[in-house]
Computed example of a mutant assay.
Amino acid sequence: MGRAQEGKIRADIAHERLVALGFDDTERTTRRAVADAKAAWRAGHADAIRLVRART
Rank of each mutant, 00 (worst) to 15 (best):
M1D: 03
M1A: 10
G2F: 03
G2Y: 02
R3T: 09
R3I: 09
A4R: 10
A4N: 09
Q5C: 08
E6N: 12
E6L: 08
E6S: 10
K8W: 07
K8F: 07
I9Q: 01
I9C: 04
I9M: 05
I9G: 00
R10K: 10
R10L: 10
R10P: 00
R10W: 11
A11N: 04
D12H: 08
D12K: 08
I13D: 04
I13P: 00
I13K: 06
I13Q: 04
A14I: 05
H15L: 01
E16D: 08
E16L: 02
E16V: 00
R17K: 15
R17A: 10
R17Q: 15
L18T: 03
L18W: 06
L18K: 03
L18V: 04
L18E: 02
L18F: 12
L18A: 14
V19W: 00
A20C: 03
A20G: 11
A20P: 03
A20Y: 01
A20H: 01
A20S: 12
L21T: 03
L21R: 08
L21M: 11
G22K: 00
G22M: 02
F23E: 01
F23R: 01
D24I: 02
D24M: 05
D25K: 11
D25I: 01
D25P: 00
D25T: 02
T26R: 03
T26E: 13
T26Q: 06
E27M: 05
E27L: 12
R28W: 02
R28I: 02
R28E: 03
R28P: 00
R28T: 07
T29M: 09
T29E: 09
T29K: 06
T30D: 03
T30W: 00
T30Q: 04
T30H: 04
R32G: 13
R32S: 13
R32D: 09
R32A: 14
A33H: 05
A33I: 15
V34I: 15
A35F: 07
A35W: 08
A35K: 14
D36M: 14
D36L: 15
A37G: 08
A37S: 11
A37E: 08
A37P: 00
A37C: 10
K38A: 13
K38V: 15
K38H: 04
A39Q: 14
A39G: 10
A39N: 10
A39E: 10
A39I: 04
A40Q: 14
A40Y: 03
A40S: 13
W41R: 05
W41H: 11
W41G: 02
W41S: 05
W41A: 10
W41Q: 06
R42Q: 12
R42I: 04
A43W: 01
G44Y: 07
G44T: 11
G44E: 13
G44V: 12
G44K: 07
H45D: 08
A46E: 15
A46Q: 15
A46S: 15
D47S: 14
D47V: 14
A48E: 15
A48F: 10
A48H: 09
A48S: 14
A48T: 13
I49S: 05
I49R: 13
I49H: 04
I49C: 04
I49Y: 08
R50T: 10
R50F: 11
R50D: 09
R50C: 09
R50Y: 07
L51K: 12
L51H: 10
V52Q: 07
R53Y: 04
R53I: 10
A54N: 12
A54T: 11
A54D: 12
A54F: 11
A54I: 06
R55P: 01
R55F: 09
T56Y: 06
